[in-house]
Design a protein around this nucleic acid. Structure first.
Lengths: 305, 305
DNA sequence: TTGAAAGCGCTAACAA
DNA sequence: TTGTTAGCGCTTTCAA
């Protein structure tokens, strides 16, 4: 490449990295033309080696059920990170082996990582810091000291649902959960939150896996809380008239259903932007002012409650 | 590191890469211990630079609606690739800028790429080949000459749905589509396939966006084909008794709904494994025998048709 | 305004 | 069985 343009490798580097002060217009033109002709792309491995860092940000996705809400959130994060000049890539934690995230980080040396707090313990973070990873955002229920954390309080989701039903006078409530082990840990926390709220508010909560819906109806509930919108929609037709129903996720389908489903929306629109900028600030070496990003669940009122 | 173990860098490299023939047991032990003590991790950038290739496989995800079916497929691909020793990472094509995939490939120099055929034209593939990318699997409607292709015939999905309804004697059918622009291109192709099949079979097909379901019912359809299961479930309660309903995706919620939803399952269980092994073979320099991986949609019979 | 050269951390060929 | 060394492609300092 340098030879093709008749200049030194150094000059090529300056041109391609926009250090304009250093090269004459004429030389720059020649280099750019040669680059185009040859289809030259700088070797990112080499420059990463030299610089001691890549532009990659790994988003470690835990075993969450893939749906519209998650898609929107992920897309948002990717878009923001891309805008800031990073190369965001999603790693499926549960689908790789036990040390999948660890291995992925060792192999791409990301400059930043977004990961569930459970998958990235403090000692790993320390190890990564020494390897060129400078930005961290954890996702979890509780704040992690010293590391910016995106609070996803599934516990609260369950509580909000029950509070909503209780406010409307429902005393016997069914909690409808997917069979899918995917919702596993996530679901347990939600259920616990719902249970707590139920006790607090004097609501009788019966937990029923989705495939036993019919059996659950024997307790003659006045309200049903489904752990996701699909489940709610699937139950809608089977529920006796007058039984209230609230789903979770605010999926597009919930907005389009007849009757329109009441559901729970998780988190604000600007969370992806805040996650991205938190990462960016850390990587730039700034101190983070707000180490906690809160995601509050809110009820989206429909016609089913 | 080499110094800490009192050996040369070469020896460290051999030990950590399992070239056992070269080092004595005693030396190996010493090196491994030192590595553990120091928390030493080989710099993958350096070794990638040296080797001319990384272990990363980029899976370029187009603007498909995220749901359980896609999740299963993606997880499958990731698991298989991981098993083969690669580092699979998912790139959200639509969420990055226009040349997002290009940029991502330039920055991580993946050894393999799985991408929609529309996002990876032949000239790009050629360029990538020169940059250390040796495995390609395209996803699209039609085979691409010279490149293994995973055939996703959305056209056929639409046709299968209409055929299923026609077989059961339905002559007036509603096609219920999401508003979501996400399904855009994908949806158009499906609709076209359904339209063709309808004409062929003498079925009257009316296309209605999901938010106009009520208006669609004025044509008094005897069957409804929804472009995804969530939409189908959302409509279930609103449809008059006796109207047949078929969804798309075979989502868990469809299996759990009451009545159980008839739906369309897309593709076989072993597609991820075939995609992974096709990539693997190419990277190993083998010639691919079966350059086309077919994904045939099949009806999953429920109680709604 | 430009070139020469060092060095990022690793691996593989060659020497001992 | 182990050490020495060249060189992967880049950026950046120093010299011209």
């Amino acid at each position: 490449m340098a030879a093709a343009a008749g200049v030194s490798r150094a000059t090529v580097s300056y041109v391609l990295n926009g250090v304009d002060a250093r090269v004459s217009d004429e030389t720059r033109e020649r280099v750019l033309k040669a680059a185009r002709t040859l289809g030259y792309t700088p070797n990112a491995m080499a420059s990463a080696l030299r610089a001691g860092r890549t532009s990659v940000v790994i988003f470690a996705l835990p075993n969450w059920p893939l749906g519209p809400a998650l898609g929107e959130f992920l897309s948002g994060c990717v878009t923001e990170l891309d805008r800031l000049g990073y190369t965001p890539l999603v790693h499926f934690v549960h689908a790789s082996g036990p040390d999948g995230l660890q291995k992925a980080c060792d192999r791409v040396r990301p400059v930043g990582v977004v990961a569930p707090s459970g998958d990235l313990p403090p000692e790993r973070i320390e190890a990564l810091r020494g390897n060129g990873t400078h930005g961290f955002v954890l996702m979890g229920r509780d704040p992690v000291p010293g590391v910016p954390t995106f609070i996803l309080d599934q516990n609260r989701v369950g509580a909000v649902a029950i509070e909503h039903l209780a406010e409307r006078g429902h005393q016997r409530v069914l909690a409808l959960t997917p069979l899918d082990p995917q919702l596993g840990d996530l679901g347990e926390v939600r259920l616990a939150g719902a249970q707590e709220a139920a006790e607090r508010l004097g609501v009788t909560l019966t937990h029923v896996p989705a495939d036993e819906l019919q059996r659950g109806l024997e307790v003659e509930p006045t309200g049903v809380y489904a752990f996701n919108d699909e489940l709610a929609l699937g139950a809608l037709d089977a529920l006796p008239d007058g039984v209230a129903l609230i789903g979770t996720d605010d999926s597009p389908a919930a907005r389009l259903s007849h009757p329109r489903l009441t559901t729970i929306r998780f988190g604000g629109q600007d969370n992806p932007a805040r996650i991205a900028s938190t990462l960016h600030a850390q990587i730039a070496g700034e101190t983070i002012q707000e180490p906690v990003i809160n995601s509050t669940p809110t009820v989206v009122q429909g016609e089913t409650t």
